[in-house]
């Protein structure tokens, strides 16, 4: 890949990640931007990177970057949180308390030390999914599923912060580690729909395709 390098004493390849998912979280929607020395066919680039990356890290689409910067197009994320061995009714009650609150203060260790911040305001929607089957497929064990849309703010409010909030307001303690998946991120419409941030760079047709 003819990647471009930064100037200076120790040049670095120009790669920037927008709003990367936290460690230990699965994602179906991560975005990055790469500076290149010369134009290349986006589909060829997608294929080259996909070949070199690990199994399970799939490059779905590539577009030529234009217009607004990538971070400006990341306004919100949609997350799904699987909570094995949690009774869905218990989760519904906790979510109701959380949603009714104006502010839910939580704590997290950051690089700057322990910080306290509000985990409620950034949450645009929080719903218990009652219809979809358990993704893990184990029907003998109950599993509650939470769907969240969270606005991109600073400090960022992550799914584990919302879970901390549910513990604070309703004492929800998942017995086993939750499984978190980012389903989408991008610009947010007035209707609360998340739009793929690459859409604005596509000339009508999708280059990569899912």
């Amino acid at each position: 890949m003819p990647v471009a390098f930064s100037q200076g004493f120790t040049p670095h390849p120009k790669i920037s990640y927008a709003s990367a998912a936290p460690t230990g979280v699965a994602s179906e929607a991560e975005y990055l931007e790469i500076g290149l020395r010369e134009p290349v066919d986006p589909e060829q680039l997608r294929l080259a990177l996909d070949t070199a990356l690990s199994p399970g890290l799939d490059v779905l689409d590539a577009v030529v970057a234009d217009g607004a910067s990538l971070p400006d197009r990341i306004e919100a994320s949609r997350w799904r949180i699987e909570l094995p061995q949690v009774d869905p009714d218990v989760l519904v009650r906790a979510v109701t308390v959380f949603a009714a609150a104006d502010e839910v203060l939580v704590e997290r260790m950051t690089k700057q030390g322990r910080r306290t911040f509000d985990a409620r305001t950034a949450v645009i929607s929080i719903d218990v999914d009652v219809v979809s089957p358990t993704p893990s497929g184990d029907s003998a064990v109950p599993c509650a599923i939470l769907e969240l849309v969270v606005r991109q703010v600073t400090p960022s409010v992550r799914p584990d912060d919302v879970l901390s909030g549910l513990r604070v307001v309703a004492g929800l303690e998942p017995p086993v580690a939750p499984k978190v998946i980012r389903l989408a991120q991008g610009t947010l419409t007035a209707q609360g729909v998340i739009v793929d941030p690459l859409d604005a760079d596509r000339d009508g047709a999708t280059i990569g395709g899912r």
Binding site: K14, E28, Y31, G35, L45, L49, L57, G137, P197
Partner: peptide
């Protein structure tokens, strides 16, 4: 040169 933007998916084991 120029820039290119990519969408990536890291899938869970399930």
């Amino acid at each position: 040169g120029g820039r290119v933007r990519l969408g990536i998916m890291s899938v869970p084991s399930t």
